[in-house]
Simulated assay, not measured.
Amino acid sequence: MSGGPCLAARRPGSMNFPTPPPLLDALIIGAGQAGLAAGYYLRRAGATFVLLDAGPAIGHSWSARYDSLRLFSPAWTSGLPGRSWPGNPLRYPTKDGAAAYLAGYAAHFRLPVLLNQRVTSVAAALAGAYPPAAAYLVRTAAGQEFAARRVIISTGPYQTPNVPAFAAALPATVRQLPSQQYRRPAQLPGDGPVAVVGSGNSALQIAADLAATGRPVFVAFDEKTPALPNNTLMWALLRLTGLLAVPRHTGLGRYLHRRPEPVVSGDLARLRRFANAQLIGRADAALPAGRLQGRRATTPVLEAIVWATGYRPSYEFVHLPIFDAAGRPAHERGMTAAPGVAFLGLDWLDSRRSALLHGAGPDARRVVAALLARREQ
Results as ranks from 00 to 15, higher is better:
G82L: 02
A99S: 06
G59R: 09
A133P: 07
S73A: 11
R83K: 14
A106M: 00
D53K: 07
S63Q: 09
P86N: 06
A107M: 06
G128T: 13
T94I: 02
G79P: 10
I58P: 02
V113T: 05
R44H: 07
W85K: 08
G87Q: 10
A47W: 09
R43I: 02
A37S: 11
S78E: 12
S121T: 15
V122N: 07
F49N: 04
T48P: 01
F72L: 10
S63N: 07
T94D: 03
R118Q: 15
D67P: 01
Q117H: 15
R43C: 03
A54H: 14
A125S: 12
G97K: 04
Y105G: 00
G128D: 07
W62C: 01
S84C: 12
A98H: 09
G97V: 01
A64S: 14
A57W: 11
Y136S: 06
D53L: 06
A123L: 12
S68A: 15
V113S: 02
A107Q: 11
P132W: 02
N88K: 11
P112M: 05
L90Y: 08
Y40C: 03
L115P: 03
F109R: 00
W62F: 08
W76M: 06
W85V: 15
S121M: 15
A57H: 14
L69C: 11
A47M: 07
A100I: 00
R91F: 09
P74Y: 03
Y101T: 10
G82Y: 02
A99K: 04
L137C: 12
G39Q: 03
P56L: 04
R43G: 05
L111F: 08
G39A: 05
L111R: 02
L90S: 11
A107H: 08
A45L: 14
F49Q: 04
Y105N: 00
A37G: 09
A54C: 13
S73F: 01
A45D: 15
R65I: 00
L71A: 06
L115N: 00
S121Q: 15
A54R: 15
P132Q: 02
A125L: 08
H108C: 06
L102K: 01
S78M: 08
T48A: 05
G39F: 05
A45K: 11
Y105W: 02
G82I: 04
A129F: 13
A123M: 12
S121C: 15
A99C: 05
L115V: 04
